[in-house]
Amino acid sequence: MSKMSIDPGRYALSGPTMGTRWSALFYRPAPFDPEPVRCALQAAVDEVDAQMSTWKPDSDLMRLNAAPAGEWVTVPERLMEVLRLSLAIGRASGGAFDIGVGDAVNAWGFGPAAADRNLVQKAFAAPRRPVHEVLELEFECRRIRKDSPVTLDLNGIAKGHGVDRLAETLRNFGIASGLVGIDGEMRALGLRPDGEPWTIAVEKPDRERRAPYSILALQDAAVATSGDYRHWVDVGNRRLSHTMDPRRGAPLLSPPASVTVVARTCAEADAWATALMVLGPESGGKLARRLHLDALFLLREEGTVRPQPVGYLFGGGPSNGDGGDNSFRSKLCESAYPGAPSSEI
């Protein structure tokens, strides 16, 4: 039997953003022109980059960073939303998620410039207050001011927010089922055409090659992973990951190999994955259980990787994904398989 026009066609779109690639996978009945969707998706992530990049000197975030303490700065609505969420998760995590570590990120060479020993020493010596105590936000008029000097960095949440913008853009085109992502941060909309959830790999924390550790099946949920195996700096005989300890203004000394978080939005998953990396498996696990987060800590022990799950999804107890809420249905497949893709895209 020939393919009928009502059968859905598969569309896989992608483009550049934030030094990596965005991707979108969805199905639509023919005839369908994907070019307007591709242009809108690209515009959505371009807007995020223009507002929140620390690599673009003229971004709205860099304009805020350049403003002196005490001066009110008007920012775009979406940047205000991300700042508000960043401060909320910062408070909820006891300061573990802190966007005020931009000086340390730059000093250690994880920003646009190379590492600088003098800046490292300055970041170590700088008095550090949680950024939610430093920033004052006026939401109605979208104004922000700093009561003391601070360099903001949104790398722990901007990609997640970009994924949410991709999902929002698909919905604006009436596409209620799809999978979008930026550099491994993913969000699933609805179900696949066959009625099954979207499958996404939790990556094995391996610096040498990309391979799946386990497989997630997601419906109307987002996933993000923070790890020590993609971006690092070697200091003597020690390898330090890019995740900063907000208390020290320096890379974490003994972080988990990775933390994966599933949440309703990718911005939340992204920020909480960073926060739990900072807190570590003991303190982070306790907080995740108290807040009903679905999280998977992967810990390196004697040459192997040991999982520490938190929440119903990962087999660690009750979570927000439990209780029959069909708008947030996810599961962890029992076993990974060699050669599994890192995502459906």
Rank of each mutant, 00 (worst) to 15 (best):
S2A: 12
G9D: 12
R10F: 08
S14Q: 13
M18L: 15
P29Y: 10
D33P: 03
P36Y: 07
C39G: 07
A43Y: 07
V48D: 03
A50F: 08
S53R: 03
D60P: 00
M62V: 09
A67T: 09
G70A: 12
T74P: 05
T74G: 12
M80Y: 06
E81D: 10
E81K: 12
L83D: 01
G90E: 05
I99S: 03
I99G: 01
R117Y: 10
K122E: 15
K122Q: 15
A125F: 04
A126T: 15
V134C: 08
F139I: 12
R142D: 11
R142F: 10
R145M: 12
N155M: 10
I157W: 01
I157C: 12
K159I: 08
D164H: 06
L170A: 03
I175E: 06
L189P: 00
G190F: 04
L191H: 08
A201E: 02
A201I: 03
E203N: 09
P205F: 05
E208C: 07
R209P: 05
S214C: 14
L216C: 06
L218E: 02
T225N: 06
T225E: 04
G227N: 03
R230A: 09
V233E: 10
N237H: 13
P256V: 04
A257K: 04
V259C: 05
T265H: 10
C266I: 08
W272T: 00
T274E: 02
A275G: 06
L279W: 02
S283A: 14
L287V: 05
A288K: 00
L291G: 04
H292R: 15
H292C: 12
L293E: 00
L293R: 04
L293I: 15
D294F: 02
A295H: 02
L296R: 00
L299S: 05
L299D: 07
R300C: 09
E301S: 14
E301N: 14
E301D: 15
E301F: 09
E301T: 14
G303Q: 13
Q308L: 14
Q308C: 14
Y312D: 10
F314S: 00
D325A: 13
E334P: 07
Y337E: 13
P338H: 12
P338Q: 11
S343C: 12
